[in-house]
């Protein structure tokens, strides 16, 4: 398995598409970090240093979006691009039957491919976060505290799990669908569906099931709850909820408040202290578990389908 793994990793790093993807991600990330740091600098100069300033590099939006939003939106594409032709390219090139006639277990092929993808993603994220941290340190002149560094590390793990889910999804499609083009389109279609339509759809369904009534707080609450529950089907929502809590210690819950009276708001801001890292992790643990579980399910299905597929069709 290690042999296949090594070759797959080499393939990923040598491939043109990976280079293009990496360039794109790095360019956007650098640009965003740069504008954000410039904004932050002008805003905070003269004042006292805000706690967790460093994390704001990643969470406040620059020109259009913040870095975490960018990854939430763009991450799936990375996973899809790395996985959509994993198996069916080998099939159409005739190398799959050759691979299978060598003394390797059949699952070694799919394990190695999945692992190589995850490792590539991990390397990509790690270097990206380190690069941006370095840039941020120079640009705003603030060194991250241990707490912040730990939060960044957790953020990275969640991101890897998130992109890993999409990688698993793409590999699954590459096993089920014979044609490379169809597999790519199917993955992209699913991505767009969960990124955009689940968001619209959850609002629509919630309005039908429990119409929001301005004068009836219970109905409004119910409406919001239903919308949130449906939204959680989408890994994109899971990811953005989880990361925004990790990256912003002042967020104590992933839920948004529907109705907050003026007095409540005052009392909330009086006790507005940052959560400790452990508490933040506790808040997002269910989200993280779901993400990892989704990835595991994707992989398990791919594994089963691949192991049971008749070789005749290979």
């Amino acid at each position: 398995m290690f042999t296949i793994f090594r070759k797959e990793i080499a393939d990923h790093f040598n491939s043109t598409r990976f280079l293009i993807l990496l360039c794109l991600v790095v360019c956007v990330a650098l640009l965003t970090t740069y504008t954000v740091s410039m904004n932050l600098r002008s805003e905070i100069s003269g004042g006292a240093k805000i706690e967790y300033l460093f994390l704001m590099l990643f969470t406040t939006s620059g020109q259009f979006f913040s870095l975490t939003q960018f990854i939430a939106f763009f991450g799936p594409l990375i996973g899809i691009i790395m996985g959509f032709d994993a198996i069916n390219r080998e099939r159409s090139a005739g190398t799959l039957s050759k691979l299978l006639s060598q003394p390797v277990y059949r699952d070694a092929i799919i394990n190695a491919k999945f692992l190589a993808g995850i490792v590539t993603i991990a390397i990509m994220f790690a270097s990206l976060v380190l690069l941006l941290s370095g840039l941020g340190m120079v640009a705003i002149g603030v060194v991250p505290s241990g707490q912040e560094a730990a939060r960044l590390a957790v953020y990275m793990l969640i991101s890897i799990a998130y992109v890993g889910f999409w990688l698993g999804m793409a590999i699954l499609f590459s096993i089920i669908l014979r044609s490379i083009g169809t597999a790519a389109l199917a993955s992209v279609a699913l991505w767009i569906f969960v990124s955009f339509f689940v968001g619209f759809g959850s609002g629509l369904i919630a309005d039908v099931v429990a119409p929001a009534d301005q004068n009836n707080p219970e109905m409004m609450l119910k409406n919001a709850r239903i919308a949130a529950a449906i939204g959680r089907v989408s890994p994109v929502n899971l990811y953005s909820d989880a990361t925004s809590t990790i990256m912003d210690p002042y967020r104590k819950t992933t839920k948004s408040f529907v109705l907050v009276g003026p007095m409540e708001r005052i009392s909330m801001s009086r006790f507005n202290n940052p959560l400790s890292l452990l508490q933040s992790i506790l808040v997002v643990a269910p989200y993280l578990t779901t993400l990892v579980a989704l990835t595991a399910v994707c992989f398990a299905v791919s594994y089963l389908v691949f192991m049971r597929q008749e070789v005749r069709s290979i």
Binding site: N14, E90, A93, G94, T95, L96, S97, K98, S101
Partner: peptide, 9 residues
């Protein structure tokens, strides 16, 4: 196999 395949690159 019939139509033996290789990694072209």
């Amino acid at each position: 196999p019939e139509n033996v395949g290789f990694y072209d690159d």
